[in-house]
């Protein structure tokens, strides 16, 4: 370029707070991701009690409600995590837009997975699903036959509607994809990558995703098939 290049002008930009940096935001995303994945696993383990008969879930729900500090503590942590997860995604997405204002006429991904390229889509869709899920099974506004406290019954009645089941199944597939990239990606973001362990971590990510997808999807399918009544 015609003018002499010096980096002096950029020096002011070097004093960046952790949370303002791209890596800082990604770390927030990774840590909140860990929390959310942990919750999703716990949530599934709890839900699998649906296979133990009509009362198990209601009892489980009752037990959770009898421990307000635990319940509300979890809810607050989750709310904050989801909020931060979305905050970092939104701010980083803005950065992405600015970094490539003009795209390619032709673009052919070489190696990246569909899952990894669609995080910015699968994320918002999952957020919408969570809102629906809460209105559906927690508060009941989206559930015509909702009865407070009758968890098992709400579940069975809800899933007997094939459209509802289909939306849950789709959402879970989406979740599986999101986590297939996300679980491995969390480790990479916080700096864990080693030729010895990374292949294992990728398998772990696949296993976690598969477990969550299969476990969660089995419930509406079982309801539709009449296995759970």
């Amino acid at each position: 370029m015609s003018t002499a290049t010096t980096a002096l002008a950029g020096k002011a930009a070097r004093d960046v707070r952790f949370l303002d940096s791209t890596i800082g935001k990604k770390v927030v995303m990774a840590i909140t991701g860990v929390i959310l994945v942990g919750f999703v696993i716990g949530h599934l383990l709890g839900n699998l009690q649906v296979y133990q008969g009509p009362h198990a879930l209601d009892v489980y729900a009752e037990k959770l409600k009898s421990l307000p500090p635990l319940l509300w503590g979890t809810r607050i942590v989750l709310l904050i995590s989801v909020g931060l997860h979305i905050w970092s995604a939104v701010t980083l997405a803005g950065l992405q837009k600015r970094a490539r204002p003009v795209g390619y006429v032709k673009l052919k991904p070489v190696t990246s997975t569909y899952a990894s390229r669609t995080m910015y889509w699968s994320g918002p869709i999952l957020a919408l699903f969570i809102v629906y899920h809460l209105l559906h099974f927690t508060t009941g506004q989206a559930h015509p036959q909702f009865v407070e406290g009758k968890v098992h019954q709400n579940l069975v009645l809800g899933f007997q509607n094939p459209l509802v089941s289909a939306s849950y199944i789709l959402a879970m597939l989406m979740l599986g994809m999101h986590l297939y990239h996300g679980v491995w990606s969390m480790f990479q973001t916080v700096g864990v990558n080693h030729p010895k362990y990374t292949p294992m971590l990728k398998k772990l990510a696949a296993a976690v995703s598969a477990f969550l997808v299969i476990g969660n999807i089995s419930i509406p399918i079982s309801v539709l098939a009449g296995v759970i009544k």
């Binding site: 950029g10 890596i23 980083l92 600015r98 070489v110 190696t111 990246s112 990479q188 973001t189």
Partner: peptide, 25 residues
């Protein structure tokens, strides 16, 4: 690390989403 990462962002480069296209090309 602090300075180079901050400069990369200030120059207008985006963040990493661990996708791996860079490594492939």
């Amino acid at each position: 690390a602090l300075r180079m990462v901050a400069t990369a962002t200030a120059e207008g480069f985006g963040n990493c989403t661990n996708i791996g296209e860079c490594e492939a090309v």
